[in-house]
Amino acid sequence: MNKTDFKNVYVFAEQREGVIQPVALELIGKANDLAKELGEKVVAVLAGYKMDALAQTLIEYGADEVIKIDHPNLEHYLTEQYAQAIDQVIKHFRPSIVLFGATTIGRDLAPRLSARMSTGLTADCTKLEISENKELMMTRPAFGGNLMATIMCTEHRPQMSTVRPGVMQKLTPDSSRKGVITPFEVQFDESKFKVKLVEIVKEDKGKIDISEAKILVSGGRGVGCKENFENLRQLAAQLGAEVSASRAVVDSGIMPHDRQVGQTGKTVRPNLYLALGISGAIQHLAGMEESDFIVAINKDKFAPIFQVADVGIVGDVNKIVPLLTQRLEGMMKK
């Protein structure tokens, strides 16, 4: 293998029923950083059926080129159909890097491809960088998030990874951005299509899993009565967040147990954790200290929650929260 034959950063532009998945746009954003350091292009691979407008969207979000595969076989995601399509794209264009979202689709497709091409794949990355030798450095959590590992794939191409949704940043879309759309024809071997889709069922999963939430508005004893929790719900609605609670609040019956954060509740690691009126018992901290960004509001300036908070505010949650909601509301309107 001659590494110089492999060029450009490819992103699998995952779409479902004609909707580009947010992680695909996040990956295009990250691919721009990587491509810049390598002096290469960002190429999005869009596979599906009748997705005319989507290629332009990918360009607006930073793709220099979109390889578009439009075929009825690709209307819904099925492993073998998509594996054949992406495999042929990779063999034809020889990218140096291919990124997938770590979704139920990306985590099904990417390993199948890595085995087909005998190349490495790193799962669920949270950080991607380029080394001095122009190799991809992929960092990911392991051991239940207790350990981070940086992984490389120096002797094989392409270098592939799945990337956790919600970690990388999208670019601001720019409709003046120019890009090339390249249609690509796949030669399908339909004799290998062994799995038949019978039905797709969408569920309003009803039960909210707070450990899946990107933003948590979490209330503790300091919030006080049940009525005050309404303030938290309104703030959560503004942020697209879920409401969670400390043990004290759950024990008093204000919130159900499935909303409890901490040792006896759930371990959460959202992008933003708002700890409101939570003092921060060690059992609570154990359940939330891995959150990416923690804002705490508490009356007691010695509350242990401030030791893990990125931003701490000494004050009354019941005064600050309604104000914050109001201000966010104003911002959204603009």
């Binding site: 590992a149 940086t150 992984i151 490389m152």
Partner: peptide, 9 residues
């Protein structure tokens, strides 16, 4: 094909 460059807490 993949190698661990480093692991850290």
């Amino acid at each position: 094909p993949t190698k661990v460059l480093k692991a850290f807490a």
